[in-house]
Amino acid sequence: MATVMPDIYFLPEWGKFFETKEQDGKVHFFEINNELGHIFYQFIVRPTPVQIEEETYYDIITPYGFSGPIILSGDLENKPQLINLFEKEFGDYCDEHRIVTEYVRFSPWLKNRLDFESLYEFRDNGHVLYIDLREEDFFMQQFASVTRGQVRKALKKDVEIEFDFTGEHVEEFHRLYMLTVKKNQIEPYYLFSIESLRSSFEKFGGSQFLLFAKHQGQYISATFVLHHGEYAHYHLTANDPEYSSLSGNSLIVYELCRWAVEHDKKEVHLGGAPNENLYRFKRNFTKAEPLELLMGKKIHNQQAYDQLVEAKRQNGGIELPGYFPLYRG
């Protein structure tokens, strides 16, 4: 029987696709599957950027997105034993593979960190927002009055919606996306090339689509949507600032919610908000409380970690003293 993953970020093909986001990274999988239950964990293993005694060490980071170790099955009474077994066997795995540190982007909505919170230290990365679609009428019960007004304004101004399930117009999305990148000065790690967007449709075509807003035949706003199981994700957004007065982006979120309800999704995730304006924009789509975004950190080999940090200090220095792992700072 095939294992059912709860969200797209846990799919093995997701990890494989995004391993190239990490320099020299290779996706690995670790599982415990026995009478106690089933834990699945995918992560990317990277060589550390500095070496000690001509020995190569490695560290772990979860793939782009939100995942981490997750319990896929098992009885509640067996959970403590299952977690203890995971801690021991995964610790042995890390020792065997010379893995020094681990950084986990846990899923805020699945809250899988709660099962593993005794194993990690956590860093607060703020919050992410989502729209709860289990309300009878998300438009009236979740959207703020100002946002409802923006949606109505877009419709009145003859803004049209177009779904693209094949990636036929990925060039138009990328054009709008690069305008947004330039405006918001997005960091290189979070950028997506047009080649990457095209190839993602070959890999995840059944789990993603583009949603455009158009005005008089011109593409003015767009969103790259991911979906799997009960969740839809407002993955990437793109806008032409010259048309911001038409509120195309607000109409897109509304139409995404309508699509999600029709396809039995229970939540639309809007992601985080690095600035106040973006937070206010997203917050007006939902009355649901924001979800905590916590990152798990663990040092598996303290001696090697200290030596790697010292090697970095002597070879270029530590530029980001708050970074984890510090030898990458």
Rank of each mutant, 00 (worst) to 15 (best):
L110Q: 07
R105G: 02
L110D: 14
E77G: 00
I131Q: 06
R148Q: 05
S118L: 12
A144F: 06
D92F: 01
K79N: 08
L129S: 15
N84T: 11
R123W: 09
N112A: 01
F90H: 08
Q81T: 06
E136I: 10
V128D: 14
I131K: 04
F139H: 03
L129C: 06
Y93C: 00
G91C: 10
C94W: 04
F116Y: 11
V128H: 11
Q81I: 04
P108K: 03
R113K: 09
R123P: 07
D92M: 04
M140C: 03
F106T: 03
L82Q: 12
E117Q: 13
R134S: 14
F116P: 12
R134Q: 15
L114Y: 11
E135V: 12
F90A: 04
Y93H: 05
D124K: 06
S145Q: 05
L119I: 13
Y103E: 07
Y93P: 01
V146D: 01
K88D: 01
L85S: 14
F86T: 06
D115N: 11
E121P: 04
K111A: 02
R123V: 12
R123A: 12
G91R: 10
E77R: 07
W109M: 05
F139R: 06
Q142K: 04
V104R: 03
I99E: 05
H97C: 03
R105L: 01
F90V: 05
T101K: 09
Y93S: 00
P108I: 02
N84E: 13
N125Y: 15
L82N: 07
K111C: 00
D95V: 13
E87S: 07
H97F: 10
N125F: 15
N125C: 10
Q141H: 05
G126N: 06
K79Y: 09
T101H: 10
T147W: 05
Q142S: 00
V128T: 15
D124F: 08
D95K: 15
V104P: 03
A144Y: 07
Q141T: 10
I131D: 09
H97P: 01
L85K: 15
H127W: 13
W109G: 00
G126A: 13
R123I: 11
N84M: 11
L85Y: 13
V104Q: 06
E96G: 04
N125W: 14
E96V: 07
T101V: 10
